[in-house]
Amino acid sequence: MPPKCPAAQKEQLEKTMPKRILLCDDEIHILRAAEFKLKRAGYDVRTANNGEEAWQAVGQQMPDILITDYQMPRLDGFGLVQRLRANPETEHLPVLMLTAKGFELSHEELAERWNVIAVIAKPFSPRELLQSVNEILEVREPAAT
């Protein structure tokens, strides 16, 4: 058999590798619950406790999707999204926002101006979070567990 070209090999490799998710929340139990559910679904999940940590994590390894809380110390979710959108390498990174914030948050502005795909309200369902992530990453079958 003729050897596959490197591009095709890379594509094949990417298809078989689990998608990378970066989870960012200052509430450790929330982080743990979401991480647990997504890892069980086969995703490669990494965590950060605040926006600064998440920004550094993105710099080290680009995730396929970022799920972030809104209110966090040091750098909040909105500040993190602003930084991501200002950087050409991360401006198209899909972002899901998970928040307990109420009326003071403009979902429309987050979606239209900052390209946040969805805002999921806390308390949230890990099952629904997983479904949303699957839809965004177009994973029909859950990755191998």
Binding site: I30, A33, A100, G102, K122, P123, F124
Partner: peptide, 18 residues
């Protein structure tokens, strides 16, 4: 208040569902 109450509630709900 709503934010502070929702945060522990979110934990309870998420772990119950798991």
């Amino acid at each position: 208040v709503s934010h502070e109450m929702k945060t522990p509630l979110a934990g309870i709900k998420a772990y119950v569902e798991l």
